[in-house]
Design a protein around this nucleic acid. Structure first.
Lengths: 141, 141
DNA sequence: TTGCGTGCAAAGGTTTTGCATGGCA
DNA sequence: TGCCATGCAAAACCTTTGCACGCAA
């Protein structure tokens, strides 16, 4: 990794990430939000910075099937996101950082039965979180 | 669903799917493969047909984080792919249809500890399969 | 004949890249 | 002064849409 400079632009982006921790957002979201504060940030700069943060493991990058764009999520509390598994609520997009031990047994079986060694950092379990399930219940009534 | 016509083009696409069952592919893959056989298939036609097949549940559609495109996967043998979990080799793209029991314990813990109910049909475990691991080993030498 | 499917062309997005300039250390 | 980062412009992609023509039933 190259030496990192602390630029005004970069700080503005990280500022946005902090304010939007544990939420999904797109490159466009970052661009709009930062520029709304009077900056003149360029798309390419956003992509380059987000890419770098992903490399460093400070940001999770994933694809959303619904919208035609890459989504990101930031977390300060969980160290590098490359070494643990994630779960995502398919309704609200929220991401959970899982303890790998949850999958240890399953990993052994998958290895034994299918010959596949799990990459924890890349795997995302999909489901519905409690809050969204409540909301769905209300809607259904 | 509208009435379906059996056109030469549509048959050519399904032919490709059959030959590439249990593998990931993009719209571009379909286009190239079919046209390599001397056809004059158009992008838009590919997208429209893949979309229809997804609607019918014959095709799974998902996003790949690495490449910047939508991926699809076709399976004839496993019934609806909406009810069981999948695992995918990140190297070769091969897809494994898992027995849901593999994840039962993990599912319980995730539900208890994180409040997330797993959607088996949508979840894809990422890893590296034995064959690709061997190849990687050879490359590294 | 009727209506669905296709190719063509064009548009709308997102993401990437080359290059000269500007800024941090 | 040396890099690194940025803005700008342009390009490369992916995907969607409107339209007229062709083809299946």
């Amino acid at each position: 990794m190259k030496n990192e400079y602390k630029t005004k632009t970069r700080l503005a982006i990280v500022e946005f990430l902090r304010e939007n921790a544990d939420t999904r957002f797109t490159a466009r979201d970052v661009l709009n939000a930062v520029n709304k504060l009077g900056n003149n940030l360029d798309r390419s700069t956003v992509y380059r910075n987000l890419e770098r943060l992903c490399m460093e493991g400070r940001l999770v990058k994933y694809r959303e099937t619904d919208i035609n764009a890459t989504c990101y999520q930031y977390s300060e509390e969980h160290g590098s996101c490359h070494d643990h598994m994630h779960a995502q609520c398919s309704e609200c997009g929220r991401i959970f950082h899982l303890d790998n031990s949850v999958l240890d047994d399953a990993a052994k079986r998958i290895k034994a039965e299918y010959g596949l060694e799990i990459n924890y950092g890349k795997t995302v379990i999909i489901g519905v979180c409690d809050e969204c399930k409540e909301l769905d219940g209300e809607k259904a009534d």
